[in-house]
Design a protein around this nucleic acid. Structure first.
Lengths: 95, 95, 95, 95
DNA sequence: TTGGGTTACCACGACC
DNA sequence: GGTCGTGGTAACCCAA
């Protein structure tokens, strides 16, 4: 794989040896990513199926999505609050 | 949760009893989805980390993304060709 | 027409003069779009007619659509490979 | 190309001759469709560019889309009214 | 922080 | 009416 090697890392070396290694590393990295993306796509499919099941039980999925979004925001808010609290505690030497 | 109940399903009933059941079902469905979304977010994070690792080894992530994209397109293309073959077989009565 | 003018462009000014200009510009833009959409709809109609003609000659349009889809995907794949080649060339300083 | 020939049309014949003709016809039909789809895609691109130009002049494209949609509905309404009027006129022998 | 690219969802229209 | 494909929108993620 091509790379610019602007940071002096190993994969910019000009020797054939390092090039061979580089290809193997690259293949490994790409296959790891592809595997993860497959799992991610499977989860997306699972989620879609649960929504379909909910719809089949008469629930309005659009509203469900709103509920989920709101709950996620509240979770984020809570985590932010906790982080702020920890910051204060540290600042006061109560860590 | 709001729902339109345009299909005569159980979750449009007005009684308190069915409402209770409905809430339990809804909670279960939403929690399942939230769990799946958490796993999905974790995979997104994993993918990001692999890209970061690749970058740290001197690879150009933009090119890597392009390679992955092409491989995905080729896979899709192969699947469409299989679908076409199935159409041919059906047309020939070999279904 | 409503617009937010968050970028300090001319069409957010409050004076009557610029409003007049704005309306003329807007009318021109919308009419250009409507004209293009008419041509697009005409092409959609043309395509439908060709499919009808094919069907009238005994061809299976579902299979035809699949063939066209695959050819389009292959074209896209080729373009992405060219884009990848350009990335390689840039990485090699042959830009 | 495969087809089911459920209507007794010419392209279901089993002879080699008609098959040859069929392939030529099919190629012609598909290429005509692909050409039309290319033109259609070009128009889609043109429309996108006009919207970009409008955005660059400070207009809100979302609102513009609403305006265009409303104008299209009004055009359809008007055409429906005219069709109805013609129907009445014909029914009254004023055609 | 913004802009570009990607993904997923939704709404609509076309086809059968 | 049911399925399929397409266009638009919003959200997200990365790069500059």
């Amino acid at each position: 794989m091509a790379h610019t090697d602007t940071h002096g890392t190993q994969n910019g070396a000009a020797t054939a040896d390092s090039a061979v290694i580089s290809v193997g590393q690259l293949r490994s990295l790409i296959e790891r990513i592809e595997r993860l993306e497959e799992e991610k796509a499977a989860l997306t499919e699972d989620i879609r199926e649960v929504f379909a099941e909910a719809k089949g039980q008469g629930f309005d999925t659009k509203t469900m999505r709103q509920v989920i979004k709101i709950r996620k925001m509240e979770t984020a808010d809570r985590q932010e609050q906790e982080a702020l609290l920890n910051l204060y505690l540290e600042a006061l030497g109560v860590s």
